[in-house]
Design a protein around this nucleic acid. Sequence first.
DNA 1: ATTAGCACTCGCTTGCTTAGAGTGCTAACA
DNA 2: TGTTAGCACTCTAAGCAAGCGAGTGCTAAT
Lengths: 343, 343
Amino acid sequence: MITLSERKKRILQAVVADYIRTAEPVGSRTIARTYRIGLSSATIRNEMADLEEMGYLAQPHTSAGRIPSQKGYRFYVDYLMDPGELSDDEELEIIHSLGIEKMREIEQIIVSAARVLSSITNQTSLIMGPQFRKSAFRQLRILPLDEKRGLVVLITDTGFIKNKVINLHQTLSPAELHQVVTYLNQKLSGLNIDQVTTSLINELKRDLFRRLEVLEQAFILLEESLKEEQQVRVFLGGTSNILNQPEFRNVEKIRRMLALFEQESLLFEILEEHLGEDNIVVKIGKENAFEDIQECTLITAAYKINDKTLGALGVLGPIRMNYERVIGVVRCMVDKLNRSLSS
Amino acid sequence: MITLSERKKRILQAVVADYIRTAEPVGSRTIARTYRIGLSSATIRNEMADLEEMGYLAQPHTSAGRIPSQKGYRFYVDYLMDPGELSDDEELEIIHSLGIEKMREIEQIIVSAARVLSSITNQTSLIMGPQFRKSAFRQLRILPLDEKRGLVVLITDTGFIKNKVINLHQTLSPAELHQVVTYLNQKLSGLNIDQVTTSLINELKRDLFRRLEVLEQAFILLEESLKEEQQVRVFLGGTSNILNQPEFRNVEKIRRMLALFEQESLLFEILEEHLGEDNIVVKIGKENAFEDIQECTLITAAYKINDKTLGALGVLGPIRMNYERVIGVVRCMVDKLNRSLSS
DNA sequence: ATTAGCACTCGCTTGCTTAGAGTGCTAACA
DNA sequence: TGTTAGCACTCTAAGCAAGCGAGTGCTAAT
C-alpha cells in the first residue's frame, strides 16, 4: 500500500490538507495554484483520477472536486503527516489549566483535562476516570461516626481513597471493630480490587461469623459499595463543539451524537477498548467498532498512575479533522496527566 | 387581566392546547371543527382578532393561523389549565427509578432524578446537588492514613459526609491530633457551613498556634477544601431532548443551548434564584432573567432535606411545552425527593 | 349577535433557467 | 512518452415565476 509515487503522495497530501482546512471538495486547479507543486492542473487531474481509482480519493458527484476517502485519511495519518509538536506556550497553558500545582482531587484534574482538551482542539473530548478496580488493595479502615453508622475508608496503591458510609445495625465495641478490620486487612492485603469478588467476600464473611456474629449489614453494604465503585465515570468536554463542524449541520446527526453522549456506559466501552494500547490510536470512521461513531474519527491514548494503566482519554470529531494538531495535543495531555497523577 | 369572557377563555385555551400539540399556527376552522365550541369559524375568527389585539395571541404572518403570545401562555398557566395529576403507575415508576429502597449516595439519587425527569417529560432537566454550605456543622474528624497524610471527615446535620485527604507535613502524635480535633469541634459546633469563613479559620489557626505549633499545612488545606466544596454541582438529564422540539431545528440555537449546558456555574445561578420559592415556579420566555433561555420556559421547584431547602430542580424546554404534564411531573418528583432525602 | 360568502394575502412548493466550478478527453507540444 | 492547453460536458446552487392552499378580514344576509 506504500507503493505510491512521490508525486501522488504530494498530491494526496495537498488534497487532505486543503480539505481539512476548508471542508470543500478540492479541485485540481486549486492544488496547482495553492500548493506549488510545479505541475499544471491537467496533470494533477490525471493523477487525481488515478488516486480515485486506487481508492484514496472520492468524488461527491461528477463535476465536483475530490475529497479524501477513509483509506486516503488512513494513508495520510500513517505516512504523510507531520505529527506536530505544541509550542511551549500551549504546553504551559495545559499544565496551568490542569491546576497541577495545587493539590486537587483526581476527579477535578480529570474534569479540567476534559475541558482543556476540548477547548484546545475544538472537538469533543472524553476522559475515563481512573479505574479503581485495577488498583491493588492497600488498607481498609472503619471509622465509627455514631452508634448507627460508620465510615469505611479504602486505600489503594495508586493513591485512591474511596469511602462510603455504612449502617451498623448492631452496635460494635471498638475492640470488636478493630478485630474485624485487622482481619480484613490481613486477608485482602496485596489483592487487586477486582479480585475482591462477591465470593471472596462471602468466604470472609463466613469465616468471620464464626468468630464474631455481627456485621452482617456492614458486609452487605461493603459489598454493594465495591460493586458501585466499579462503574467508572466518563467525563465529557466541549460537547457543543461538534456543532462547529459543517458535517454536523444535520439535526438528526446531532441528535444521535448527543444521545450517545448521555449514555455513559457506551462511552466507557468505547474508551475501554484502547486501554491496552501503549501508543496513540487513531480510528477513522468505520474502523470504529461502534456504529454510532462511524462517521467520526476517535483519537485515544491511555494514561497511567504510577506505571499502571488506569484510564484512557480521547478526542472525538468528524473524520475531517486536523490530525496533526489533535494528535500533538493528545500526546502532550497524556504526558502531563501521567506526570501529575503519579505522585 | 382576568376580565376575559368565558367564550374568549375557551377559545384561548383551545388555541394554546392545539398549538402545544401540533406546533403549527392554529386557524379558526381547526378550532371550530376539533374543539366543539358550537360556533362557526367566522365567529371564532372575530374573537381571535380580539384576543390578538389584547395581546394574548399573535400571528406569524398575515395569512397564517394564530399562535399564543407569552402573555397568552401566562394566562393559560395561571387560569386555564388543569394542573394534571400523574397516574399511580407513573408515580411508581418515578419512585422505582430513583432507587430509593436501596441505600444510595445522595449524588446518585440526584443523577437518577435528572434522568427520570427528562425522560418522563421529554425535555431537558436540571437538578442542583444539595447545597452543602447551608447545612450546619456537626462533627469533624481527622483520620491519620500514614505518616504524611490524613483524612478529614466533616459531618453535617443534614447527613452530608464530606471528606478530603490532606498532607500533614509535620508528624503529629495521636494525642496532639486529638487535641486539635476536640478544639475544632468545640469551636465550630452548631455553626452553618457558610459561617465557617476564611477569617474564622484564621482566627482559630492563630489561637491554636499558640498552643500547638503544627498543622499549618493542614489548615491551609482544610480551608481550600471547604472553598472547593462550596461550588455546587448541577446535573443535567436529557440534553438531547431539546432536539425533539421543532423550535430547535436551527443549529445556531442548539449551539447556544449546548454551550450554556456546559457552563455549570450559569446553570447554578439559574436554579439558585428559585431556592426561596415554596411553590412550583413557571417562568415563560422573557420572564427569565438569563438571556440565553429567553426562548424557553423554565419550570422549577425547590427540594428539602429535613425541612431545610437545600436545592432546586427544573425542567427546561421550549415555550410551547405541555405545561399540565410537566408541572404535574415536577410536583411529583419534588415530593418523592423530599421524602427520600430526608431520613 | 351570528354566520355564509368572497376577495385578498402570503408563504411554500415546483419547475425552469443560469452561472460557475470542475472534470475528462483530445490533440498538440517538448 | 510525459505534460499541457483547450474545449465540451456534467452537476450543483441560486434565483425567479407561477400556482396552490390555508387562513384572514370584511360585508351582507339571517
